[in-house]
Amino acid sequence: MNDEPSLSCPLPDDGRDGEISLAHGEGGRLTRELLRDLLAPLQNEHLVSLPDGATLTASSEQLVFTTDSYVVTPLFFPGGDIGSLAVFGTANDLAVSGARPRWLSLSLIIEERFSKRELARIVASIAQAALTTNVQIVTGDTKVVPRGAADRLFINTAGIGELTLPTPGPGKLEEGDRILVTGPIGQHGLAVLIAREGLGLDPVPVSDSASLWPAVDALRDAGIQVKAMRDATRGGVAAVLHEWADACSQTLVLEAEAIPIRPTCRGACELLGLDPLHIACEGTMVVAVADKEADKALRVLRDVAVSHSAVEIGSVVERRIAPVAIRRSLGQLVPLDEPTGAPLPRIC
């Protein structure tokens, strides 16, 4: 707690003790208090003196740097919240780039009158997610904006990781390569949609929000030559495959029967008229490997908690009818369309 001698008059805080006020963002005592109290769970050696920048020592020559902003609504949803999402999401962008996530920055843009209790819950969730992912929050910023200028809370995280598993990328995909997915798809987008709309489905789909680094690390450890990896966030698996197909000018063929979808998710998608292949995941990635490596890669992935239900869902063939095609019940190959616009806005 604040151990400074209290010589000055306390600043007015609108009389709303449980809420963030504009004064919390103005750089004075309230700002320092906010940082000390609420950000305490994040403490590490880099944050002790709250410097303007963090000095870091990397053990790899090649670093990967990424950033992402989180504007999900609602802030809390089954399986996660905006805080854990802001850690896992950015760490996963590093992981699928083949980098071990090491350091994150954390910027909070808070709407005036946001609940301190909720903020504390979110910060605790950020701390927990950072611990699980083994990343440090090393620098950050807090801004408070007037009511109506933001929707409760926005978070930006930037991340630095050390490159350990460079991949040739989707441009090098060739005929015969196989496409794996590390778990059931569509969970995150649906969990958020259902929480937001209060659709009252039972049981509810739960977000898959989680760190993918253990899965990537296991592939590296086993010496698997991964050709391409991507977490299937906005636009879902279909968006990833379309990007890959464009990069390699081949056709990616999916087997509908093989695609893992939990019954709760499938039921909700049928009901709402959504295609699970278009729905965002936050702890599931698509991996492409050469034919001869696929079985080993699957064994390795299945030994890791986050990817224990990894399966093969398709393969790369010579460009035929469409960039991405899917074989459904009749055995006909049908083009799989690219998601156009977001059916579910603000899911991350």
Binding site: G273, I321, A322, P323, V334, P335, D337, T340
Partner: peptide, 25 residues
């Protein structure tokens, strides 16, 4: 992305059905 009419827009529109499932064939 640039629909001239409703059948290309709606999730039940015939033009959207062709654009989604059959355009490339």
């Amino acid at each position: 992305d640039t629909p001239l009419g409703a059948p290309m827009v709606s999730s039940e529109g015939a033009c959207a059905a062709y654009a989604r499932h059959a355009r490339q064939r």
